[in-house]
């Protein structure tokens, strides 16, 4: 690991720690008012108060976990689907079926992600799990594409064709010939999907999908408190900085990690 990699990894680790461990560290209730709205920071409330006079620091600490867990779950689910479908479509002998699968994946990827999230939220309102599933659904097509392209490249290599000609069973070929070459691509892809998923989860919170108020959520904090930026900007600025720091440093990390992830940032934006 180079020194630059460590420097870039620091913000990622810091934000994830704040998000995941935050609820245990929160000083008091995140939903009980402790003063009037948008009070300036004091010693006991280092970030001041929010729109309803609640402790902004407590809400910040509580509000990240759901977001990161949603993104993690969506990434795991999306990557699993991506690996399964992508590898199968790349290696199968049933070319037409594989092609048909890739076409339907293209179709799914063409739809606006937020539209699908909003639709699911109409069907099952106020549910954080549904938001995570929704994010997985909209991000899986992109994983399938990348994994499929990687698999198709590996299937074309001499050693993989030898193995196929020898009549090795499918699973053995996947494990010995495909998996080692595919792992870095799949990992980098999962990193990109995670960044896109945190952004979608934050946007979902911003739009008020998922668990309703008064639950704290970084996306919702930005929305709620944007009316009071002149009085106390911290409840808006701090969650925003955390989200941007996580996205930018993780993107640069993935971008530097390997060649197959070139144009990684564009792929995030198209998904989010």
């Amino acid at each position: 690991m180079t020194r630059r990699t460590v420097v870039l990894a620091l913000p990622v680790v810091a934000v994830l720690t704040i998000a995941l461990a935050g609820p245990w560290l929160a000083p008091g209730g995140a939903t009980t008012p402790v003063g009037s709205s948008f009070e300036a920071p004091t010693d006991s409330y280092p970030m001041g108060t929010d729109v309803l006079g609640r402790d902004a620091l407590a809400r910040l600490l509580v509000g990240g976990r759901v977001l990161v867990l949603q993104a993690l779950a969506a990434t795991l689910l999306g990557s699993a689907v991506g690996l399964g479908a992508g590898v199968w479509a790349g290696i199968t002998h049933r070319r037409r079926l594989g092609l048909a699968l890739m076409r339907s994946v293209d179709a799914l990827a063409a739809l606006p992600a937020l539209l699908l999230l909003l639709l699911l939220a109409t069907g099952a309102p106020g549910d954080d799990v549904v938001v995570a599933v929704g994010i997985a659904i909209v991000s899986a097509p992109f994983s399938v594409r990348v994994v499929h392209a990687g698999t198709a490249r590996l299937v074309g290599t001499e050693y993989a064709r030898h193995a196929a000609a020898r009549g090795e069973p499918l699973l053995a070929r996947v494990r010995r010939d495909i998996a080692p070459g595919l792992a870095p691509v799949a990992l980098a892809e999962a990193g990109i999907r995670f960044v896109a998923a945190t952004q979608l989860a934050a946007t979902a919170g911003f739009l008020g999908l998922g668990a309703g108020a008064p639950t704290a959520n970084w996306g919702r904090m930005v929305r709620e408190n944007s009316v009071g930026v002149t009085m106390n900007a911290l409840p808006v600025v701090v969650p925003a900085i955390l989200l941007v720091a996580l996205a930018v440093s993780l993107t640069v990390l993935v971008d530097r990690a390997s060649v197959p992830t070139r144009l990684a940032p564009e792929r995030i934006d198209r998904a989010a």
Binding site: T203, V222, R223, L243, A247, T251, V252, P265, A272
Partner: peptide, 14 residues
């Protein structure tokens, strides 16, 4: 542009 891409739309707008 990397910074802009890392910033969700709702933050830019806010």
């Amino acid at each position: 542009t990397l910074g802009l891409i890392g910033t969700p739309d709702f933050l830019v707008a806010t």
